[in-house]
Structures are given as structure tokens and as C-alpha cells.
């Protein structure tokens, strides 16, 4: 396999992507995690450029780094707790084990046939994993893929319906996020707390009634 400039760039970008991703999932400082997430996104955008789909590289920078990362940083700022929380939870070791196992399984599967593993070396030539990539004669593409993609998004027999549904999804997500994260005015906050207190009191009454006279409560429920 020849080592070209693209191979070196790919190696560098993979190191950036995987290294910053590791930092993201193992650091205690959430702001640094958000910044490393941004670096990872840049690395992924570089990988898209290597795959000759520059449009999606720019879209990645615009959507992920320009919007989602900023959302993350705002959320990190707004939820800074007073107590330093532990970094990992109780099942962290198990999670790490599962991740590594999954990675090994996937790597074994996607290797091309030439590199696949022989389960029983010697007598029978059973191979583990290995997908014949021989069907991939890589053709060259021109820049018309963007036009094709755009045409498919408005073609009724292609992806028009998912496109419109995605637009509706974004609208709903926008409205929902704004409503959920809205800063409540003091009157609203008090009204909410009253409502919760009333419900809690009613629940308590119901518990007491169940302890003393369960039949009447269950009979009342059936109506």
C-alpha cells in the first residue's frame, strides 16, 4: 500500500479525532470537554474533506461547531454545580469493557478478506470476519454530487417527504426547547410550586386513606 500525502493527513486527523474524543469522555472539567469536542468535530470535518465531500465538511463546521457546541458551552455554564461531582459512575469499568469489546468486534468484521483471521489455522480455512471489498473500484466523482443531492431533496419520488419532516422536526425542537428552558417569572414559579404542593398533599391524603380504609378508596377509584 503506497503512502501518499492523503495517508499522512488521514493519520494526523484520526489522531486528532480519537485523541480529543478520549479527552472528552475522561475529563472532569466540562468546559475543556466542550472545547475538545469542538476539536473533534474539526477533525471529522477534515475527514469529510478527505472523502471528497467538501459540502458536508462545511455543513459539519456550520452545524456542529457553530451551533451545537455553543449550546453545549451555554449548558455547561448554566449548570455549574457547587459540589465537584465524581467523574465516572458505578458501572464505568463495565462500560469501558463493553466499549473495547465492541471495538474489537467491529475491527475484526470490517477488515477486508485478505486480512481476516483464520479461526482454526492449518486444517480448515475458516475465516473470522472479512468482507470482500473487491467490489469497490473507486470511481472519480465530480462536483455535481451537490446538485444531485439537492435535486433528490425536492424530488417527490426521492427524499422530499423526509426533507419536509426534518424541517417540521426542527420547528418543533425549536419551539419545545425554548418553552422548556424558558426562564419562569416569579409569579409563574410560585404558581408551579403551589401546584406541586397541592398534588403532594393530595397524594399524602390518598396514602393515609389507603392505610386506614382501603376498600373505600379502591371503590372510589373504579368510578
Amino acid at each position: 500500500m503506497t503512502i501518499t500525502l492523503q495517508t499522512i493527513i488521514f493519520a494526523l486527523l484520526s489522531v486528532v479525532v480519537l485523541g480529543s474524543a478520549l479527552f472528552v469522555v475522561t475529563t472532569r472539567n466540562l468546559f475543556h470537554a466542550a472545547l475538545m469536542l469542538i476539536l473533534s468535530f474539526f477533525g471529522v470535518a477534515g475527514l469529510y474533506v478527505l472523502l471528497e465531500s467538501g459540502f458536508f465538511a462545511v455543513a459539519q463546521v456550520l452545524v456542529y461547531i457553530g451551533a451545537i457546541s455553543i449550546l453545549f458551552i451555554f449548558a455547561v455554564m448554566l449548570t455549574r454545580g457547587m459540589v465537584a461531582m465524581p467523574r465516572v459512575n458505578a458501572q464505568a469499568q463495565l462500560a469501558a469493557l463493553v466499549s473495547v469489546l465492541l471495538f474489537v468486534v467491529i475491527v475484526v468484521i470490517v477488515n477486508p478478506t485478505a486480512l481476516s483471521i483464520k479461526v482454526l489455522p492449518g486444517a480448515s480455512e475458516r475465516v473470522l470476519g472479512g468482507i470482500p471489498w473487491q467490489f469497490t473500484t473507486v470511481t472519480t466523482i465530480t462536483d455535481s454530487y451537490i446538485k444531485q443531492f439537492g435535486a433528490s431533496l425536492v424530488d417527490g419520488s426521492a427524499y422530499l417527504l423526509p426533507f419536509l419532516l426534518a424541517a417540521v422536526l426542527l420547528d418543533i425542537a425549536l419551539a419545545g426547547a425554548v418553552q422548556v428552558a424558558r426562564e419562569r417569572r416569579p409569579a409563574e414559579v410560585l404558581a408551579e410550586r403551589e401546584l406541586m404542593a397541592a398534588e403532594a398533599a393530595e397524594e399524602q391524603q390518598r396514602e393515609q386513606a389507603l392505610d386506614t380504609a382501603p376498600e373505600t378508596v379502591l371503590a372510589a377509584d373504579h368510578h
Partner: peptide, 21 residues
Amino acid sequence: VAAGLFCIGLYGVLGRKNAIA
């Protein structure tokens, strides 16, 4: 590379104590 990134993300989801993480 994609598999590695996926597994790192998987560890992040399963093994972290902070919802944002």
C-alpha cells in the same frame, strides 16, 4: 476510525455521571 469514535462515545454515554457529558 468511525468504530473507534463510536466506542469512545459509547463509553461516554454509559460511564459518565453528568448528563451533559
